[in-house]
């Protein structure tokens, strides 16, 4: 199975390639991708250089253009696709059907992957994208169990890629409006979930309080590991209880299920984290590469090194193994 690794900067890209990534995914420094964070991502020139470097090491580059086009501003995304192809991208990761149609028509030889943001989560939806736009691979949502993935794998006509490590989005991606509700900006349209412009941290006594827009997301007592200020991982008063409504501050780790994923027909394992630093990328890719090439009984010890780098310093197998609350 291929290891697909994140890069938010050219420095992180080099680290991912050097650590053994089979492919690196990245995006332009604008609203065309779902990690449109300040100071992050690639200029055209940086992407061209990065792809050239990757090719010398036998590593592929996937370019994410996985936000939804704004009506009247489609040219931004069209130009992104044209430039990524000109830079030598091995695949484009797309979410918007309109953009898929544009790429399929203008660049019929370009390999097209369906982004997790497209929320294609059943055989009918996936096969429609394969038949209509010649999609070669689908990145499945993190809302499916391994049994679901195996069932889907038997009925579709393209490769499957699944997230195995990193940030855990528990929502129907591409459809989630929580960030929009709180801030007016979303990963779907603006490339940002819980944008930094709306995040505030303050100390209240010894507690750390995180706020998103007008909402208090969490209050971490001293010594408790912190998490990102996203509504889906907020701690709220619910009836008579206080707790996490959707999910705890936690990262995804399903490397313990590699054999099951392989048996389910998964061909690529994706690491989340384009917004993370190059130290994270280097360490995670190195450990994951070693884990993929190790016998199952050795994986736990290898992956334990990554827990301290995870959100809330905890990991979970998420929906892959559990039922919703």
């Amino acid at each position: 199975m291929e290891l697909i690794c994140p890069a938010g900067t050219p420095a992180a890209f080099h680290e991912a390639v050097d650590a053994g990534a089979d492919a690196v995914y990245c995006g332009f420094r604008d609203e065309t991708n779902a990690r449109n964070f300040p100071g992050l991502n690639f200029s055209r020139e940086e992407l061209k250089e990065a792809i050239a470097y990757a090719k010398t090491k036998g590593c592929e580059t996937f370019v994410a253009l996985n936000t939804f086009m704004r009506a009247g501003a489609e040219e931004i995304w069209y130009r992104g696709a044209a430039d990524a192809i000109a830079c030598g991208a091995d695949a484009l990761i797309l979410a918007d059907f309109g953009l898929m149609a544009h790429v399929a028509e203008k660049y019929p030889d370009q390999r097209l992957h369906v982004s997790v943001q497209a929320s294609a989560s059943n055989p009918d939806a996936i096969n429609f994208l394969v038949d209509t736009f010649n999609a070669k691979r689908v990145v499945l949502p993190r809302t499916l169990t391994i049994a679901d993935i195996a069932r889907i794998g038997k009925s579709i006509r393209c490769e499957m890629e699944v997230f195995v490590f990193g940030g855990l989005c528990v929502m129907a991606e591409g459809r989630c409006s929580l960030s929009s509700y709180a801030t007016g900006k979303s990963p779907n349209m603006n490339g940002v979930c819980s944008p930094a412009s709306h995040v505030h941290y303050r100390k209240h006594g010894r507690d750390l309080v995180s706020e998103l827009g007008e909402f208090t997301i969490n209050r971490f007592p001293e010594g408790e590991a912190a998490g990102y200020p996203t509504l889906c991982k907020g701690r709220f008063d619910i009836a008579d209880a206080k707790g996490y409504a959707f999910e705890d501050p936690v990262s995804l780790d399903v490397m313990g299920e590699l054999e099951a994923l392989k048996a389910a027909g998964v061909s690529a394992l994706k690491i989340e984290g384009r917004q993370r630093g190059k130290a994270y990328v280097a360490e995670v890719v190195k450990v994951m590469k070693a884990a993929v090439n190790s016998p199952p009984e050795r994986r736990g010890a290898l992956l334990a090194r990554l827990h301290s780098m995870s959100e809330g310093q905890k990991t979970t197998s998420g929906a892959y193994e559990k039922r919703w609350r």
């Binding site: 590991a225 912190a226 994270y280 995870s310």
Partner: peptide, 14 residues
Amino acid sequence: DADALFFSRDLSVT
């Protein structure tokens, strides 16, 4: 990694 230091509470940003 800044996020990891934030999670462990070794780093704070205001």
